[in-house]
């Protein structure tokens, strides 16, 4: 009995250790395969284009719509409060900075967790069920690198671009609300380009590079970890979304903190 308890405790610690170590091992695997990207034919262009289409181009409508509405909602809420003290023109500042710094990048990341992270996890999980992962391995191809890098690159390209779409849509949303709340279009636009600077814009967009990496890694990791059955694939996709959202929000907090050190 005591021995069994002992066993259980030790196995608990072993699994806990494995759970912490596993993602790190996974990241190590991916990073160690980085040089293979520069090998001849080491990169799968076609796959990358597929994901660029899936996670980037096809996400434009939803990203634009959500960010537009986000900007409009922000504008309404800000205007309602600022109207009390007669400072409606600062709605422009609030919407502009919020969208550029947070909502643009964050909304894009959130949409991508839904679209990309779950898709990655499900895809890799299914490949595992079909023994495609094993096939890759026995072909002498490292599946982690082979499957992760095209996705990663596609995400690293598409998320910043999507964030730009989101930024533009968000500001447009604020502008629409502003024009219906006695801030003329010209005044809104003039104020927007006066207060917003390219550094804020670029730093906001740069955030999405971190988000893209986290979402891709989380999605792929959950796919690789999923158990090899239909339910396992479903669970893997779910946990990929949950893990990505968690990581994105934590990373956003950390980045915001880091940005505050350099004054943004």
């Amino acid at each position: 009995m005591a021995a069994e308890n002992n066993n259980r405790i030790s196995s608990f610690f072993r699994t806990a250790g494995v759970q912490i170590a596993e993602p790190v091992v996974f990241i190590g695997k991916v990073v160690s395969q980085f040089p293979s990207l520069f090998r001849k034919r080491g990169f799968r262009r076609k796959e990358m284009l597929y994901y660029l289409d899936l996670c980037g181009a096809k996400s434009i409508p939803v990203v634009t719509l959500i960010c537009f509405l986000m900007g409009a909602v922000l504008g309404i809420q800000a205007a309602l409060q600022m109207r009390k003290v007669g400072t409606e023109i600062f709605v422009v500042d609030l919407v502009g900075f919020s969208v550029l710094k947070e909502f643009g990048p964050l909304m894009v990341a959130m949409i991508s967790t839904g679209r990309a992270a779950s898709a990655f996890a499900a895809e890799i999980g299914t490949m595992k069920v079909n023994e495609e992962i094993s096939a890759l391995e026995t072909m002498g191809i490292d599946p982690a690198a082979y499957l992760v890098y095209p996705k990663l690159l596609a995400m690293l390209i598409s998320l910043p671009l999507l964030a730009v779409f989101g930024d533009a849509a968000g500001i447009a949303g604020g502008m629409l609300v502003g024009s219906s709340l006695n801030i003329p279009f010209q005044a809104y636009w003039a104020r927007t380009i006066a207060v917003l600077d390219q550094m804020t814009f670029l730093l906001g967009v740069a955030k999405t590079l971190v988000f893209a990496t986290l979402i891709t890694l989380a999605g792929c990791y959950c796919g690789f970890r999923a158990s090899s059955d239909a339910q396992g694939v479903g669970r893997g996709a779910t946990s990929a979304v949950v893990l990505s959202i968690f990581l994105v929000v934590v990373a956003d907090a950390v980045i915001t903190l880091l940005y505050s050190f350099i004054g943004y």
């Binding site: 284009l49 660029l52 289409d53 980037g56 181009a57 096809k58 434009i60 390209i157 598409s158 671009l161 999507l162 730009v164 779409f165 930024d167 533009a168 927007t192 380009i193 917003l196 600077d197 390219q198 550094m199 804020t200 814009f201 670029l202 967009v205």
Partner: peptide
């Protein structure tokens, strides 16, 4: 689709950089 995505995205980036200060 990818072409539209990339081209409009880049144009937007340039436009934003221009309006937000590069101007």
């Amino acid at each position: 689709r990818i072409g539209i995505f990339a081209v409009t995205g880049l144009l937007l980036i340039l436009a934003m950089l221009f309006f937000f200060g590069l101007s």
